[in-house]
Amino acid sequence: MKQKGQIRRRYIFTKNLDSSLTDIYNGFKFFVQFFKELFRKPFYFRETVNQTFEIGIRSLGLITITGFIVGFVFVKQSRPSLESFGATSWLPSLMGIATVRALGPLVTALITAGKVGSGIGAELGSMKVTEQIDAMEVSAINPFKYLVVTRVVAATVSICLLALYCDFVELLGSYMNINSVEGISIQTFLRNAFSSIYFLDIFTNVIKAATYGFTIGMVGCYKGFNATQGTRGVGMAANKAVVFSIFLIFMEEFIIVQIVNWIRYL
């Protein structure tokens, strides 16, 4: 009996390992196919622009509210620590560094992973299980090019722009709090906030946002494009798109920060 249980556990472990490795291999093939199709004609510019607007506008409201609250609350939570050694004048500078180096792209990525990633996963998953993708293919239209390439490019571009917008809204939120307590002017706030920001920080901000946008688009499309098991599969695709995107975003954050810090102290 005990031996049977061991064999069963070993079987389940081997099966899960096999399916995980297959998934990684298929994901890699999907990634390679994206770059092959990206530079191959035809280019669906109009669809890419439509998707960019769609993703951008769909997330704008949420980014505005979340970014503002993050900026406002971050200042509120940081003030007591700085107050204890009389350094509240450092708040704008602290916010500038925190926003541009980490918070802006990360908050944008987490919000859009939930909003856009799940949306792409569910949309493509639903198209897959209702044979709309097959219908596209038999109409001599390349569904990978039309659905995946356009969405991944759109997600990359729009999340870059959203991250810059999120930086602005976060700084606005933090200014509102600082202004209401310390009463400093907008000019002083901006001068102090940007005093510790360098070109490398802005550049990293954009690179991070682009990487997260690409990841969200790719994972959403991959999970949606490979959805199975009917409507249950659509839900699973949307769910996995969010979970896996967020996991990858944190991994990428960790790696990018290490690389940038290494460059910073060269």
């Binding site: 044979e131 097959d134 038999v138």
Partner: peptide
């Protein structure tokens, strides 16, 4: 494929 028409079971119309 342009010389073949395929009518799917569910219609497969783009939602």
């Amino acid at each position: 494929r342009l010389r073949i028409g395929f009518s799917f079971q569910s219609g497969a119309l783009y939602d």
